[in-house]
Design a protein around this nucleic acid. Structure first.
Lengths: 89, 89
DNA sequence: TAAAAATACTCCATAGGTATTTTAT
DNA sequence: ATAAAATACCTATGGAGTATTTTTA
């Protein structure tokens, strides 16, 4: 599991499909597909239901999303507090 | 910022020096040095004071450690809840 | 002077790209 | 028919290794 995979995952949820998320992230659609596949394989669970209209979260995906949100919040907090420190010296 | 860097950071804190941490992580000491350097450059702050006796956290490093602990806890939680889900289907 | 970190390379794993195919409405 | 995801294959970035040098207590 890597941070960029979590960022990709969240972007796909927010955009409702891989193609739009890829554009927003400035990466190709296959790059997203591959990273999400790797993540799903590592977690041994399907995160999205795919269709030709886009994707939606599975139950497991919904659970995972809640944790990912918290992880990202923590990372934002960590960076913020370190930035303050870097400026204060 | 990547997860493996946070894992490396935490291992170095716990071991008190890069060499021992590298052994515990089964990676080389220069690999750790490089990743921590990259992390420090990205955060634009020094995390460790280096000496020939080992390393210790700077104030910024101590602050960062607290956040890293929380991030890792969240990740553990995320994995656990997903594992349960994977088993239950 | 000895233990630890940093540097200088080399190599390779894998993230990412383009082109194309498959799938589902 | 078309919009979206998956697959195949190639490229290149950067993570990791070995050998060595630098640093400092």
């Amino acid at each position: 599991m890597e941070l960029h995979q979590l960022i990709y995952f969240k972007a796909i949820v927010e955009n409702g499909n891989f193609t739009k998320a890829a554009k927003q992230l400035h990466v190709s659609q296959p790059a997203l597909s591959k990273q999400i596949k790797l993540l799903e394989e590592e977690l041994r669970v399907q995160l999205f239901e795919r269709s030709s209209r886009g994707v939606h979260l599975t139950i497991a995906g919904q659970i995972f999303l809640e944790h990912v949100k918290k992880i990202m919040q923590q990372i934002t907090l960590a960076k913020l507090s370190i930035e303050k420190k870097a400026n204060s010296k």
